[in-house]
Design a protein around this nucleic acid. Structure first.
Length: 134
DNA sequence: GCCAACGTTGGC
DNA sequence: GCCAACGTTGGC
């Protein structure tokens, strides 16, 4: 089982929206590195849910419910989507600032390559994030 | 709204 | 195949 971090602008699709919908197809990824991460996801993997631009915080986690399939929003066979369902809404959101201030999280992709929209998260990092969210 | 960092495109 | 030019993302 693996951990990931997926990013969304809350005014486009927020975590609360996902909770309301119950599930959603994670579409629109148009970056090869992010695409490869989508393809590597397995059912049951945990995806931390990060709000970019507004909020700039991890607000909860989602779970991979269906592994990758052709992105329904494009004909281009290069792009894929996965289906995710809400998992845990954090009691306390983890701000980007909190991540940056925690030395143990200094190597997170979120810090190192903030532009990547689907990122791998190590088990150690996942544990720390869960700790910070309590 | 600015701009740094990164990815992609296209001319050579 | 290199790299300059351009576009996009996202933190500030």
């Amino acid at each position: 089982m693996n951990y990931w971090l997926i990013k969304s602008e809350p005014f486009v699709y927020s975590y609360d929206q996902l909770v309301n919908d119950g599930k959603t197809d994670w579409t629109g990824v148009r970056n090869y590195q992010a695409r490869n991460n989508l393809k590597a996801m397995e059912k049951g993997d945990i995806c931390f849910y990060y709000h970019s631009n507004e909020g700039m915080e991890i607000v909860g986690s989602a779970k991979v419910n269906k592994t990758f399939f052709q992105d329904p929003t494009t004909e281009d066979k290069n792009w894929v989507a996965v289906e995710v369902v809400p998992h845990k809404k954090f009691k306390k959101t983890v701000k980007l600032q909190d991540v940056k201030e925690d030395k143990r999280l200094a190597n997170m992709v979120l810090v190192k390559n903030s532009r990547l929209s689907v990122q791998p998260v190590t088990a150690a990092e996942a544990k720390i994030i869960e700790e910070l969210s309590k």
